[in-house]
Amino acid sequence: MNSAELDPDDSNTGPPGTVPALARGVQRRRILRMAGSALFAVPPLAFGARAWLSRAPASPLEAMARMSSAQAANGRLRRWSMVIDLRSCDGCQRVGKPPQCTAACIEGHFAPQPMEWIQVYEQELPGNGTRFVPATCQQCQNPPCTNVCPVGATFSTPEGPVLIDQERCIGCRICMAACPYDRRFFNWATPPQPVEALGMKYEVEHQAPAIRGTVMKCDFCPDMARAGTLPYCAQGCPNNAIYYGDLEEDVATNGKAVIQISRFLSQNSAFRLNEEYGTEPRVYYIPGAGEAVGRDSSKRGRLATVWPWKKVASGSRTWSR
């Protein structure tokens, strides 16, 4: 499909506010084009298709266009990114709690049990030690998940985050098959969520309340960054290991220090998970095993994540991943 009009580089020539109108135009043309193919593919269904077109629910592109996209002071589009300094990550062994990034994310997002949108994996190292790798959605710039989605319910935004429109998702889970990082979660039942989550108005960038039969994942909190605060996980980290930043202005912060991302990455030999996949993640890691916060790499184990809610919506069920 031709979505050249959405090329973010085009925003150089026009005001950034033109994205919504273009997005709608592309969307409409795409609907018509797909309706054209449906005419051949499903002749009986297609008779009513055109009449139905006007009833088609709002697209994620339109939903995205409704969001104010974040701009730097001089109108440049933000390009959100994350750097996780593994030298400072000890799986919260020092504080003696479950990983606090995960805990903060769960509290902020009401992430249903058993979803750890940021999950702290313990990875074996050469020798006999381990290191802790907190993994969010890697926010790939060449995302395999968005490409396989049959309905365009998951999509990249110009700012970088890969989002899911749970009001469009049909629950086929091909994105979960395509994600090579195990970072997508399915609502196998109505998940347990606190009562306040149920009262929220659903937003693509804040996936509450959870919808049964749809896929969820880390949304990278661009809404929070736009409002000028760090994402929950970065706020929650007691060791300030998580930097959140903007590749456009080449700046990031962990809440304590401000760094120039490009220099920080190069100086510290940053890497990305499974670089060989060509997914081009926006999440970078600085190699380490928690030594900056005094962890010995041979000290294994972290506490299991707990979901804090005492009272959850009735009729919900939990499951194991």
């Binding site: 499909m1 959405l6 580089d9 990249s156 970088g160």
Partner: peptide
């Protein structure tokens, strides 16, 4: 006021593996 960061997305073949939002 130039947009500086170019998303590093490798090579995409439009119509085969381009995402809902095409990029450079």
């Amino acid at each position: 006021s130039k947009q500086l960061y170019v998303p590093d997305i490798g090579i995409r073949l439009r119509g085969l593996n381009s995402s809902p939002i095409a990029q450079s």
